[in-house]
Design a protein around this nucleic acid. Sequence first.
DNA 1: AATTTTAATGTACACATGTTCATTATATTT
DNA 2: AAATATAATGAACATGTGTACATTAAAATT
Lengths: 195, 195
Amino acid sequence: MLKHDLRVIKTQESLRHALLELLKSKPLEAISVAELCRLAQINRGTFYSHYKDVHEVFKRYLEVIVEDFRRAYEEPYIKTRFKIENISASMIEIFHHVKKYQDFYQIVFDQRIPMMYYYLLFDTVRTFMKESLAKSYIDATDRVQVDYLLSYQTNAILGLLMEWNRQGYMTPAEELNKQLITILSFNSPFRGGDR
Amino acid sequence: MLKHDLRVIKTQESLRHALLELLKSKPLEAISVAELCRLAQINRGTFYSHYKDVHEVFKRYLEVIVEDFRRAYEEPYIKTRFKIENISASMIEIFHHVKKYQDFYQIVFDQRIPMMYYYLLFDTVRTFMKESLAKSYIDATDRVQVDYLLSYQTNAILGLLMEWNRQGYMTPAEELNKQLITILSFNSPFRGGDR
DNA sequence: AATTTTAATGTACACATGTTCATTATATTT
DNA sequence: AAATATAATGAACATGTGTACATTAAAATT
């Protein structure tokens, strides 16, 4: 299956288009390979020579979206150093990105959907966190294992996105960003009682 | 299907037993309803009158495990106030619990498994976080929306568990707890560069 | 334009899914 | 112990899954 073969491109585009069409009327989990192929007018055998299952079609699309996110994130990060004062600049990009592709992230965070999409997002955000950390926190390396710190911080951000999703994206992105700044400016939310 | 009917109990126990048996040799995603019923010697039609799919059998079991976690968590929390000095007491219980049921949490965190299990764990931890927060951080209510703070903190902890899982639970629970204490004692991991 | 390469199709197969319903077996209730 | 209630079974059916392979169609190459 040569990537540039016109037949291959046509097949994959038909399937992607059909998937987006079906997603308008039913959840991803309810879409079968058979139904997708019927709508796309693609032989089911052909489908299996391109994808393992319906999820893989969606995943390919999500990868494009996440790539868009990567660009959105990198931009402000490059021009500002990663301090709490301007973390706003990098994170607001995340929030705007998720809002932009709200329909997709609703699927990613769905109860019935496999964790793979979550991990895709997680790994992307974590890579950025790592780059940020490397520049400003080299001295922390021996105090905490960097891996744990990174996963802690990354997943914390994803926790905000999950909550945003659960609330139907009602909170404005700017407000969400403000929440994050406030949380980060706490010494530690757990240090209560003795301050 | 009356819960106390001996036939019902026997059916459900057979299925649970068969599931645990099959899990020894293959991943959850590879277990079909048909195979499970064959091993449990239960009619497939009977299966569907109890469960929607294989995941529901596992989920019922996980709920028992999470209930065990609830007890483990509540114990130290009740006797100590929730300060950073003794957060260790509550969190170490989480780590010990996850370690104890390592085989199950490996499944929960698996790429192929639906998010539902993650949310089950998330909601449980979040409930405890909420109780902790209510006592020591009432004044924070208007600074950040409590929902976002809770989801941030809860998911951060789950981030540690995910990392632990990814590293095959090699880190000792005590070490993990020490990592957490260290992370929490940072003013903010993002405030670097200007301290 | 003719040739070669290879993607797509059609068909078949064994097995899984989810549902229905009459029949049988086994609890619970009287 | 007999009567009643209901859970479990078995069979059937339409549909979906994943794979295999010979055939056809449409690309790329010469």
